[in-house]
């Protein structure tokens, strides 16, 4: 199998590390060679962050490059637009529609671009856009945005529900499992 590439993008502190951990666990248990690459440190302080997940028969590079991502999983819509060039021709976006103003917008030095979902769709790109924050709150915690996104991503994978559930269980503390299972379902069954 040709190596598949996922990038998870968002704002430092939004929970992308847990999402990549669950994905990595899942893909390894499905028998793939897997590499996950993260960035720790300075950029985690509210900066733009990217995590790479790659899987296949044999994976070499730990990173995904421009024009290579089969999936972009995004926690914030401006970040979706920022990392758009990483999407492969025909790739799929799964994104949260939440807007978090970056400092240049807060200080008035720049403007937050409008109608990003529509513009991406108009460019002929496949995009699943949903208000994950509302869905996560519905599930019981605003921190479950990452799991809502994974739920939606699962829709595009030929991997059993049991395997996803096992990876959730293995990586989420027991007292938050129910909330996260609910968040996963809400994402998976989202009908845009």
């Amino acid at each position: 199998m040709e190596t598949k590439n996922i990038i998870i993008v968002g704002v430092g502190g939004q929970g992308s590390l847990l999402a990549s951990k669950i994905l990595g666990h899942l893909l390894l248990s499905e028998g793939f060679d897997v590499k996950v690459s993260e960035v720790h440190g300075m950029s985690q302080r509210g900066g733009s962050v990217i995590t790479y997940v790659r899987f296949g028969d044999k994976v070499y590079s730990p990173v995904v490059d421009k024009g290579q991502a089969d999936f972009i999983v995004s926690f914030e819509i401006l970040e979706t637009a920022r990392w758009l060039s990483y999407l492969k021709d025909g790739g799929q976006i799964v994104t949260n529609t939440q807007q978090i103003d970056p400092m240049p917008v807060i200080t008035g030095a720049a403007e937050y671009p409008s109608d990003l979902v529509e513009k991406i769709r108009a460019a002929g790109i496949k995009i699943d856009a949903m208000d994950c924050l509302t869905l996560a709150r519905q599930a019981g915690s605003q921190k479950a945005v990452n799991i809502v996104l994974l739920g939606r991503l699962s829709h595009y994978f030929d991997i059993s529900e049991d395997a996803w559930q096992n990876s959730l269980k293995a990586n989420v503390p027991p007292k938050f499992l129910e909330i996260n299972q609910k968040a996963f379902e809400l994402g998976k069954n989202f009908n845009g």
Partner: peptide, 19 residues
């Protein structure tokens, strides 16, 4: 190599900030 697609909009930078 593929350069990928991008929008015409200027994407504001998101530098790290004090929490």
């Amino acid at each position: 190599i593929s350069a990928g697609v991008s929008l015409n909009d200027t994407i504001p930078a998101r530098p790290p900030v004090m929490c």
